[in-house]
């Protein structure tokens, strides 16, 4: 693979295209605009030195009553989404794959930092998003599936679990550890070829030569990073900046905080320069139109960008 120092060019392109996206007419707006949401989270405040991250309650604190039952059911669904809610999951992912330690780990988009921040107002489109809608977004994009209904047992259980994890957290106040705490873009941009070298040395053992992950029987153990079993082109993780944050804090598994900013960006770019399921918001069957409307202004990403002579965003089934 050739060196692809496309980062500065991309930012420029993104800036130019952003204007176009806003000017685009709205006749092709998605059928359910409320699901149109894996937008970037605002930057979380830094953790003051010598202060701990918020500590969610322990499992022993789950009460033994109907509420506790629902908390446990939510936790089970969060860890075993594919097995317990197969009709809503189109790939092989589980929520816990990206929200480590059952949604408890700081800098892995923990649920205790998320739940108290909804409903959230978005100036960009003058809309209010609920917690349930945010989860539906993860079903549609991260899980490449079909979101369960807002009042379904599944989303009620998942909401109850997040509510319980947030016990004692302040409402409406962003906590340190929210989201993935992205490292700043490296000065010289990122490099896909260098990212491949990081991948082969540090990630391949688990995630496989072709990013396919590893299974035991039908159970996914190491999740897929690209290809049909992975998140789709509309998922937040397809942004290089977002993936870089997740990776730097959480990967290689158990050895987070060992990659430099540069390595995290490079390997995130390598992963996200591979094909994955199509963005379900595909506009008129056109990658270019979809890029204009949804990707040009969405952090740093390679959807619709030509890499090594191939335009990305073809999708895989």
């Amino acid at each position: 693979m050739k060196n692809a120092k496309i980062f500065p060019a991309l930012l420029l392109g993104a800036g130019l295209l952003a204007g176009v996206a806003q000017a685009a007419d709205s006749t092709n707006a998605p059928r359910n605009p409320r699901l149109d949401d894996q937008t970037q989270l605002p930057k979380a405040p830094p953790k003051p030195a010598r202060q701990q991250y918020f500590q969610p309650p322990a499992d022993t604190d789950i009460p033994n009553n109907a509420f506790g039952e629902l908390v446990r059911r939510g936790q089970d669904l969060f860890m075993n989404t594919k097995a317990l809610a197969p009709e809503y999951v189109g790939n092989e992912m589980n929520c816990v794959n990206c929200h480590i330690d059952r949604g408890r780990k700081a800098n892995s988009a923990p649920l205790w930092a998320a739940y108290p921040m909804y409903p959230a107002y978005r100036k960009k489109n003058n809309k209010v998003n609920t917690y349930v809608e945010r989860m539906q977004g993860c079903f549609q994009f991260s899980m490449n599936g079909k979101p369960p209904a807002a009042d379904s047992e599944i989303l009620t259980a998942l909401t109850t679990y997040a509510y319980w994890l947030s016990t004692g957290a302040p409402t409406g106040k962003a906590l340190p550890g929210r989201g993935f705490d992205e490292p700043p873009p490296p000065k010289g941009g990122y490099d896909i070829a260098r990212g491949k070298a990081v991948y082969e040395k540090q990630c391949q053992l688990c995630h496989g030569e072709n990013g396919e992950g590893k299974k035991v029987g039908v159970t996914s153990v190491f999740p897929a990073l690209w290809g049909k079993d992975s998140y789709n082109w509309g998922a937040g993780m397809h942004r290089i900046n977002t993936a870089a944050g997740f990776i730097q804090h959480n990967m290689p598994l158990g050895r987070g905080e060992t990659l430099s900013d540069q390595e995290a960006w490079d390997v995130a770019a390598y992963i996200n320069s591979h094909e994955r399921p199509q963005d379900p918001r595909l506009v008129n069957g056109s990658i270019d139109e979809t890029r204009k409307r949804y990707h040009a202004d969405d952090g740093v990403n390679l959807y619709g960008v030509v890499v090594n002579g191939k335009k990305l965003g073809q999708g895989v089934q």
Binding site: D101, R104, K105, C206, K214, L253, G256
Partner: peptide, 26 residues
Amino acid sequence: LRGAWERNIPECTLCHGPAGVGVGDA
């Protein structure tokens, strides 16, 4: 089954497979 993430210890089954039956060659 749960690990000790406050010390960066993933649950053993995350690498050694469900019920510790092993995963792949490594």
